[in-house]
Design a protein around this nucleic acid. Structure first.
Lengths: 133, 133
DNA sequence: GAAAAACCTATCAAATTGATGGGTAAAAAT
DNA sequence: ATTTTTACCCATCAATTTGATAGGTTTTTC
């Protein structure tokens, strides 16, 4: 299941994409619009900044804004960045050590096929596909 | 991610489907073949029996066997039964209470579309598709 | 220098995951 | 009858993840 981290990250990105694209939007505003604790969003938005999806600016008049146009973000990269991985099973995650069972594993092809399906679904969906205005 | 519960359940089912379909197979044998703790598998196989996927027989000569032919089991029902749900987000799980945000939720259609994709993938895959002999 | 913002560090309760251990009941073989 | 083999039942547990909260520091503008 996609946890709140990935889901809230997506809502942050949608929120920013719905605002004036040149202005820096304070997190306080996003938190209020989305009805989510600002403190919790701080943790999540940190990943988005570190992952180079957002630009941030400190101080008065600061906030966050998108680095690219909404159609240039895939939903997949947003979720993968904040959830850590899109892999369907532990042995297919990037950080996973090589499973000794892999060569004879009868279920591995299933998980690979599923992993590709999920990857394609989310990487073909763009942030712009989620905007309704 | 699919946890060990769902993955081991699938391996139990594949193991049983690879044995003589009339015989009761003791869990001890499955555990040894699969290299998984028998005690842990007990917990998992309980779900499979209660979910009516397997028949069990106590006592000497007892064990477990499939209730149907391998082509009559979908991978989806095995995973859904043991993992609890195949839903991609909490608000789409069967046990979820109605989300007050649902009507205006901009991301809900995405999760629904994804949920259907996942459901179709796993329900169209049959246990017989995973047998290699 | 005050105000508004990001940023940084720590902590925490609850739930989930991945098991282990010990005992009871059932069925068959001897 | 008793032993053996099996399923079945119940409790516990350590580690990790999830979903936050709290408080303080730095940066920037007015």
């Amino acid at each position: 299941m996609i946890s709140t981290k990935g889901r809230y990250a997506l809502r942050i990105m949608i929120d920013l994409a719905s605002q004036d694209s040149d202005a820096f939007i304070p997190l306080k505003d996003i938190a209020e619009r989305q009805g989510i604790s600002k403190k919790y969003l701080e943790i999540i938005i940190k990943d988005l900044v570190e992952g180079n999806l957002l630009t941030s600016l400190s101080g008065k008049g600061g906030g966050y804004k998108l680095k690219r146009k909404p159609e240039e973000y895939s939903v997949g990269e947003i979720i993968e960045l904040t959830e850590g991985s899109l892999a369907p099973v532990a042995c297919l995650a990037a950080k996973a050590e090589d499973c000794p069972r892999a060569s004879g594993c009868i279920t591995l092809p299933l998980w690979k096929e599923y992993g590709e399906l999920v990857h394609n679904f989310f990487y073909n969906k763009k942030l712009s596909d989620l905007l309704n205005d």
